[in-house]
Design a protein around this nucleic acid. Structure first.
Length: 596
RNA sequence: GCACCGUUGGUCCAGUGGUAGGACAUUAGCUUCCCAAGCUAAUAGCCCGGGUUCAAUUCCCGGACGGUGCACCA
């Protein structure tokens, strides 16, 4: 209903629009205009305040281009790579690897080269599932969702634009843990662009090729660390568990974070904690909670490493869209980088008490083993070490026998230099687990606009306004002279605007057209407060005063210029207009608003 | 990526084989003491490339972009 009107408003008023219009436009890329960029930045600031600062976490900024090796480790190189084959008859595209896996006993067709998959299609007479035409001879095209690029000239090494901000955090874990002084838990956040070369980007801000993510990677010791669940225990949440989605008469579960965790509906307390934090944050920035839910991933949609996974979803124009994901990722990410990368993606976990353990070791005399076994000497030594750990008793005799490449080798026991030592271990290296709340910033902006879009009547005239929270609204206030035929009013309005800007407020000044027109302009971009300088405010004995108008109610109070900056700052930080209005005289303007 | 439909000032629309008109918005002036008022004037447009034609914004082909459906969305 309001979808077209909102899209038109977003374009006309400078919230966002398709990029590169002068060159025909580029699908999947949007530019945030002056209002949209301010709104988006305020959303990011509010996120930063809640998920970085108030959680005691630290934010980093990593490059958007990363080398191929990173994505070999993360699994994106393989996992993001789709093989498509197109039917020559009906034009349908199909996943070639899936067709082969369904029709043959090949299990991992995705790992095969495209030509081999094409051969398998031909050899097995696989036909188009849509129309039955045989697909033999059709090329199998590789399509990777990552944007590829070259790093450096000449024999450049392949690189990719990151498909998620998370990898920029994971790959720097060895250094980041130093900054945390090796102590778990700690959290690292990042806000920035990510890139996916979508086959068919659609729906404005909802599915872009470049988009902004705000992600937190919370690194924890799975055996020790628990979230401060009590802080959000009583937060009410609307859950849509997997069991309810699969049931015929499935319904939402309205409960609290504490109950949902206690009853195991939410599997991980850490995930539960962040669902609670997120729900409060969404309310703070202006998401309509009647159009909001947490939906659990179904078993088939969950990544294999994610134990429990929930999405935050908002309803926009009748559709539910994913605006954030919350996953318990276990040690998957850090283990992969530990395996592929050079550094240790582990932390040293100190025991409460140092442990003394007996450890059997060997220290073979290589000057004997070398001449005796030649090239096999190193393998023999290694076999002795393994044997010492597994079966210390084998060293009891005069000689000890080990198996190397199927051959039995005899070594004198004293050459092996077997001994049992007492070793003090003060701790062990563990791979932290990761809890990942991951937010889509653009989709959040889209949600806020859709939920803020309102129409009502003021003084019998219809109006459109965005009921955005003051904290995220693109502008904090607008300043007008009531009329422009009195220099005193324009002069004071100029001064007021300058003072407010000096106080750090984003303020628009407007003296064009009638006062009503100016109010409507600001209403339409969601400016929460308008300051109007009138003659009543500068005549008389008292200090200069102005009127302050609240957007949604159109109610006004008269307020001294001297108090304006402080009050507007308080309003931006969340103080209700009603409590400010109580301190001042209401202005009777005979204006009636009729809600919709 | 496939199929269907579409693309005209900033926005929303009308229209035409002889290069276009409205509404709203914007700007300037007049007017104006509180919610899109009035008057005057101004700015501003046929998505791109190729073809047919004396002539193409209009017809044809291709592309880009957008909407819808399918596929895709780790």
């Amino acid at each position: 209903m309001a979808a077209d009107a909102l899209a038109e408003l977003a374009k006309r008023r400078g919230f966002f629009f398709g990029s590169n219009g002068a060159y025909g436009g580029t699908a999947g890329f949007y530019t945030f205009g002056p209002q949209g960029a301010a709104l988006k930045r305020n959303v990011e600031d509010a996120w930063r305040d809640r998920f970085t600062i108030r959680e005691g976490n630290r934010e980093i900024e990593a490059p958007t281009v990363m080398p191929e090796a990173v994505f070999e480790a993360s699994g994106h190189l393989e996992g993001f790579d789709d093989m498509l084959v197109e039917c020559p008859e009906c034009g349908e595209s199909h996943r070639a690897d899936h067709l082969v896996e369904d029709a043959t006993d090949v299990e991992d067709a995705e790992a095969l080269p495209g030509e081999e998959v094409a051969e398998l299609i031909a050899d097995n007479g696989i036909a188009c599932p849509a129309c039955g035409t045989e697909l033999a001879g059709q090329p199998v095209e590789a399509f990777n969702l990552m944007f590829a690029t070259d790093i450096g000239p000449g024999d450049a090494q392949p690189g990719y634009l990151r498909p998620e901000t998370a990898q920029g955090i994971f790959v720097e874990f060895p250094r980041l843990k130093e900054y945390a002084r090796g102590n778990l838990p700690f959290g690292i956040t990042q806000i920035g662009p990510a890139y996916r070369n979508e086959i068919s980007p659609r729906g404005g801000l909802l599915r872009l090729r470049e988009f902004t993510q705000a992600e937190l990677e919370q690194f924890i010791d799975p055996e020790e660390d628990e979230p401060p669940l009590d802080r959000v225990r009583d937060v009410e949440v609307r859950l849509y568990p997997a069991t309810e989605q699969e049931a015929d008469d499935g319904d939402y579960l309205d409960t609290t974070v504490g109950e949902a965790v206690d009853e195991g509906v939410i599997g991980s307390p850490w995930v539960g904690y962040y669902l609670g934090v997120a729900r409060e944050w969404y309310e703070r920035v202006g998401v309509d909670l009647d159009r909001f839910r947490f939906r659990q991933h179904l078993a088939g949609e969950r990544a294999h490493y994610a134990a429990d996974c929930w999405d935050a979803e908002s309803e926009v124009d009748g559709d539910w869209i994913e605006i954030a994901g919350f996953a318990y990722r276990g040690d998957y990410d850090l283990s992969k980088h530990d395996e592929y990368g050079d550094d240790a993606f582990t932390v040293f976990k100190r025991y409460d008490e140092p442990k003394t353990v007996e450890r059997a070791t060997v220290d073979p005399d290589m000057s004997v083993l070398g001449p005796e076994f030649g090239g096999d000497a190193a393998a023999v030594a290694e076999a002795l070490e393994t044997l010492a750990e597994r079966d210390p008793d084998a060293f009891d005799g005069e000689t000890v026998a080990v198996d190397v490449d199927g051959e039995t080798r005899e070594v004198d026991a004293d050459v092996a230099n077997f001994s049992v030592e007492e070793v003090t271990e003060s701790g062990e290296h563990i791979t932290p687990h990761v809890v990942e709340p991951s937010f889509g910033v653009g989709r959040t902006v889209q949600t806020l606009l859709a939920h803020a879009y309102s129409e009502d009547e003021v003084d019998g005239e219809s109006r459109t306004y965005l009921s955005l929270e003051p904290e995220v609204a693109p502008q904090d206030a607008a300043v007008f002279p009531l009329v422009t035929n009195d220099d005193r009013l324009t002069a004071l309005a100029d001064e007021v605007a300058a003072d407010l800007r000096a106080a750090g407020l984003a303020v628009a000044y407007d003296d064009s057209g009638s006062i009503g027109r100016r109010y409507r302009r600001q209403d339409e971009v969601g400016t929460p407060f308008c300051v109007t300088v009138d003659r009543d405010g500068i005549e008389g004995d008292g200090p200069d005063t102005v009127t302050l108008r609240e957007r949604d109610s159109a109610a006004q109070v008269r307020i001294p210029v001297a108090a304006l900056a402080d009050e507007l700052t308080a309003l931006r930080e969340g103080e209700p207009f009603a409590s400010v209005a109580d301190r001042y005289d209401a202005v009777d303007t005979d204006v009636e608003t009729a809600g919709n």
